[in-house]
Design a protein around this nucleic acid. Structure first.
Lengths: 339, 339
DNA sequence: TTGTATGCGTTATCAA
DNA sequence: TTGATAACGCATACAA
């Protein structure tokens, strides 16, 4: 079913159907109603190939802002972004990527500001801050849709989210620990940071699942690794020195390298069973030496690919493909780490 | 870079460039060389949006032949096929699916024959038989590319394969067993069928990995579950009756329901740790009651989606997107079974 | 407020 | 062996 067919059916021109379809106004309400009815009953959907060809002249741009500098987790995600970019080219859509370091709302606002004049859609790895929420609303008012990636921005006017279910990830990690420890452990938990929603959700999922299903896994220590290696080293060392009977550690966020160094420095690598999240450069070596038993990953490549594609789909179809696209929580051991 | 630009650059018409590009012949060798050179140096690639629009008139059809009847594993794969079909519609490409039951080469040949007159590409879940290999070659000669899905067809002229690495899947299952049993088990293996390549590869990956890495996992019994529930019941029952000291079972292929029934009938569900492949309707219940410890899955949805999309890409671009697209071997426990 | 005409890049049908 | 030209479905500048 094409615009032309709808047009003849209603006795109007294709331009009028286009005006109705894209809400450009300047059409008599009565005519509009008639066209809308025809569109509805025909189950009309835009042909994206044709639309892609037509909008080439406008050369739309998708913007991406991500806190990826100095964070190896995002390397793989940016690979997915690159793959999506190659596909965008066929549709005459360009991509502009701005990377930042850390989580400073002001900096993120500045980068969005740098993009907002030229983009038709924004993919954002958002910092959980009211100013960002407000900025997303402002963009929405100006007709620029935002796709959040990796972490959602609650209460905002973003149009869709691509990322994992952190609480489920926490529960999955609890399940793996239960399996690998036969349900018996003296456990220390190294948490992330409170200001990152995903870390809180993961911790909640993990800890509540352990308490509910594993009566013989005893949580004897709790400290924050603060999402970096130095703090992780210090926290791990202090935790193991104050309770040398600990035989199991769960690392909720970043800091794997620091945790492992502390364990080796204390020569406790034979007695500790370590569990963590995500696949970073040091992961494989720690699985190989047997200290790390398993990690739970969240498909970073797919997050990058699908978020940019979602922006593309929104531009191409004019509609939102889904409200949330949740990645799988994947259990990785040495044998299936890199696929 | 467009065909028109290439054309003016070479002082020929777009039609001539098109003839060179699509090997339609009827172009002076000298002209062809000039156009080819220009194409090369410009790094020309077809615009798929434009091509999609143009080929609508020809209304190409993709065919799919799959042994999915009476096999719940394929339900999820067919979901992925349906998703791809929805996307095909935008490109004016239709899909015809023919399902079959079991693995009879003659039947598969008949179904391919039913499709071959009308299709531009074939997606095939191939039976490992010389007649099928020959048929694929015949199609290739007639310009119809074949994408194999789920299982590859070795030595054939298929243009790409979408499916898992079964040997790696076997090694992953060995790794999970090692983790969950602390490397100590008295193990019985229930194999699949020899005539399915994937089953042999999985078994090899699993068994060689166990022998190499797990000195205290003792393989004490071996029998075939023959890929169905009745045979699986009989084999399991016989195995456990002849060696009641077995505490761990690995099921390589289908038959989970039969295996579990045998274990329950023998009232051995408390002493057996069971491992298997794939997520079928009975999987969740067996994970919940604790008999089944984990399964290794092979992304059936993605297999369906990507194989049909590969056929679409081949039609749209005229080239082959990749030679193999390998699915991940995913470790599933109750917490991350359904995502 | 509505309609006409043209172009996006590729394919395919005619003529030459 | 070549080239001109008309689609494919949608968007839009311009005319009415």
């Amino acid at each position: 079913m094409t615009i032309r067919e709808i047009a003849v059916q209603c006795g109007v021109s294709t331009a009028t159907v286009d005006r109705v379809l894209n809400g450009r106004g300047k059409v008599r309400p009565e005519t509009e109603a008639r066209v809308l009815a025809a569109l509805e009953s025909a189950g009309y959907t835009k042909n994206i190939a044709a639309r892609a060809l037509a909008i080439r002249k406008a050369a739309p741009v998708v913007g991406l802002v991500v806190s990826s500098l100095a964070n190896p987790f995002f390397d793989e995600m940016l690979w997915g972004v690159a793959q999506a970019e190659a596909e965008l080219a066929d549709y005459g859509i360009a991509l502009r990527v701005l990377q930042m370091r850390g989580y400073h709302p002001q900096r993120q606002l500045a980068l969005i500001g740098e993009l907002e004049e030229e983009i038709s859609a924004l993919v954002l790895h958002p910092i959980d801050d009211p100013r960002i929420v407000e900025k997303v609303a402002e963009l929405a008012d100006r007709g620029i849709p935002t796709v959040t990636v990796n972490t959602d921005l609650e209460g905002s006017r973003r149009c869709c989210y691509v990322g994992s279910d952190y609480e489920k990830g926490g529960r999955t990690a609890a399940g793996v620990m239960n399996l690998a420890t036969q349900g018996k452990a003296r456990l220390g938990i190294l948490t992330g940071v409170d200001t990152i929603l995903g870390h809180r959700q993961r911790l909640y999922g993990f800890e509540s699942s352990i308490r509910e299903h594993c009566p013989h896994i005893e949580i004897v220590a709790h400290d924050s690794a603060r999402d970096d290696d130095e703090s992780a080293y210090a926290a791990t060392r202090a935790m193991l020195e104050s309770d040398p009977q600990i035989d199991t550690l769960m690392l909720i966020a970043a800091g794997l390298k620091g945790v492992c160094e502390a364990i080796f420095d204390l020569k406790m690598e034979k007695s500790i069973r370590l569990f963590a999240f995500d696949n970073i450069p040091v992961t494989q070596a720690m699985l190989e030496n047997g200290l790390l038993k398993a990690v739970v990953c969240q498909q970073p490549f797919q997050q990058g690919y699908l978020s940019v594609r979602a922006a593309m789909d929104i531009i191409l179809t004019g509609g939102v493909p889904y409200e949330k696209r949740i990645m799988e929580n994947q259990i990785r051991i040495l044998e299936n780490l890199n696929e």
